[in-house]
Design a protein around this nucleic acid. Structure first.
Lengths: 332, 332
DNA sequence: ATGAAAGCGCTAACAA
DNA sequence: TTGTTAGCGCTTTCAT
């Protein structure tokens, strides 16, 4: 059997309370007993049982990460960087995929709460307002990652999608493009990026055109390809397309190829998220990058902060995206 | 506060023990009290505290998944399917990336054991034999996923890499290729796939050639591209390349493009893992697919089985891979 | 069929 | 400075 705090206590000739104090650096303990206890702890490879200490109101050191759809490569990046930051801070990440399904969201949250995870990081979207509200009311630490949910008062760590959209489109404009299509999905981020698109057009003095925005219901290559097909099938097709994420952009790439269009000669394409897909595509995809390592660190910082002291004021951290130019964009 | 079993008991006018029995379907309880208790449970939205029941030796319903490197898209697929199967079976997955680092492996395992996860699924590789041995000796449920570790007696759920290698190379041979290169990494799976390569060559009556096997230290696009470059730079370059995973194959694709070789006219390429990268590449990548949904289900089945009754005999499940032909392979 | 009581491993008052 | 005690929420004998 694994040794318990009592085994340590017995061998060291002290009480369990003393051992606990040594382990947690609380109260005053003489240096002598401290050393003695630590020595035994080391010898027996003693490791406190997290369950037991969590029962006393301490942390479980587990954070649930809710992700809508792991087939989108950007979510893998989220996971990667959040797990990394979590490891750094001493927390593990429990991966919960929700498949964009409100029922599943509810089930996962309920299940995780039973396990007393210390908090929830919700990435990109969350449909079940009911459940979110309950979480907040119950004072469970929750941080939204890479999206916002306006009516809710809640901690948020995200990227400035609006500015990202602006950057993408300004790049295209600077290359001389004036007819620029967009492929968007129904998400909050997407809407912001599209807003950036309009703003960039406007400040370049380009009139926004009906029919240059294609919508996807779900974020899949196939849907994106179809949406792009609609855009590129027009008689007056755009000379550039802004995909609101790399999946959309990849779909546009496929559509272009199917139509025999050369990228970037006949069509420039910009994506968003700067995932590893960018370097697989040919030509490589110009894309807007989030500062993921920083975002990951930040989201852990915010959630741990909320776990430790539940301040009444929530914060929104909105970091700056950065355009990464590659081969998929060029002059008209 | 969340209601406890005592709250339920009090309201229902029974003892906590009775409530516990109802909840766990143990002992005999009259239908009447059962209904009464269940009703209260429902009304209060009572959910048992997993920590508390785990303290009494029950499950935590958490399984640690150790993954070496989430940048390889196949590991994301592992995660996806294992999480799915876990959800089905009522277990959540704690993601632990190890970065191929023995120290990190040890840290992660120690940390997870503190949290009393019910078991470990180790994907693809594990360097720290020490730690693995300890896990096994302590009777902790462990299953290897998608690789084997011959000297150890341990449960394994994997794909038959050898047959996968055979299938890939037989496909190339059937297209008329006789000089076939391989790009491998140092993993167990890779070695098996290469063994399949040799076997397929031999049964086709083709002499294996020195220098047609390129090795990578790590699985990155760049290294793969370099390795492929070495293969394709030879005067008598192969007409086909078998990448031991899709990353390697993608690297080969890039190398080919850099050398101005047309795929599949000048060079056929086969990958392994059938990841989503396959449909991003152009031409789309022919690749060997693992039956991931089945593997995911199986690995959960095996680990849960080991959790429930620790039988002395370990099992190895080796499933069959399947070649998926796409545009990257063609006749010589 | 039901309940009382002990205890899982730990922490936190409170005493000493 | 250290120890005693109670208790987190649950399960499990063992009585009744």
């Amino acid at each position: 059997m694994k040794p318990t705090i009592y085994d340590i206590a017995r061998i060291a000739g002290v009480s369990a309370a003393t051992v606990s104090k040594v382990l947690n650096n609380r109260g005053r303990i003489s240096d002598k007993t401290k050393q003695k206890v630590l020595k035994i702890v080391d010898e027996l490879h003693y490791r406190p049982n997290v369950l037991a200490s969590a029962m006393k109101g301490k942390f479980t050191y587990q954070i649930a990460l809710l992700i809508p759809d792991i087939d989108n490569p950007v979510y893998v990046q989220f996971l990667k960087h959040i797990e990394e930051a979590g490891q750094q801070a001493g927390f593990s990440i429990v991966m919960c995929s929700t498949d964009n399904d409100a029922e599943k969201e509810a089930r996962q949250v309920a299940f995780m709460r039973q396990k007393r995870v210390d908090g929830f990081i919700i990435a990109s979207k969350f449909r079940n307002d009911e459940v979110l509200k309950e979480l907040l009311e119950d004072g469970v630490p929750v941080v939204l990652f890479a999206f916002e949910k306006p009516p809710f008062s809640i901690d948020i760590v995200t990227v400035d999608d609006y500015l990202g959209g602006v950057a993408a489109v300004e790049h295209l404009v600077s290359l001389g493009h004036r007819r620029i299509g967009v492929i968007a999905d129904g998400s909050y981020s997407s809407a912001e990026r599209v807003r950036g698109y309009y703003a960039a057009l406007q400040s370049a003095g380009i009139a926004a055109e009906e029919g240059l925005v294609a919508e996807c219901q779900t974020i899949t290559l196939q849907e994106a390809e179809e949406a792009a097909g609609r855009l590129l099938g027009r008689r007056d097709r755009p000379s550039a397309v802004f995909g609101c994420n790399d999946v959309m952009a990849a779909g546009a790439m496929r559509a272009a190829r199917k139509l025999g269009l050369d990228v970037p000669k006949d069509l420039s394409i910009v994506g968003f998220d700067n995932t590893d897909w960018c370097s697989l595509l040919f030509p490589e995809l110009t894309s807007v990058a989030m500062p993921l390592p920083e975002l990951g660190k930040k989201v852990m910082e915010v959630i741990v902060n909320r776990m430790e002291r539940n301040e009444p004021t929530k914060q929104t951290v909105r970091m700056f995206p950065k355009l990464v130019v590659r081969g998929s964009t060029g002059p008209v």
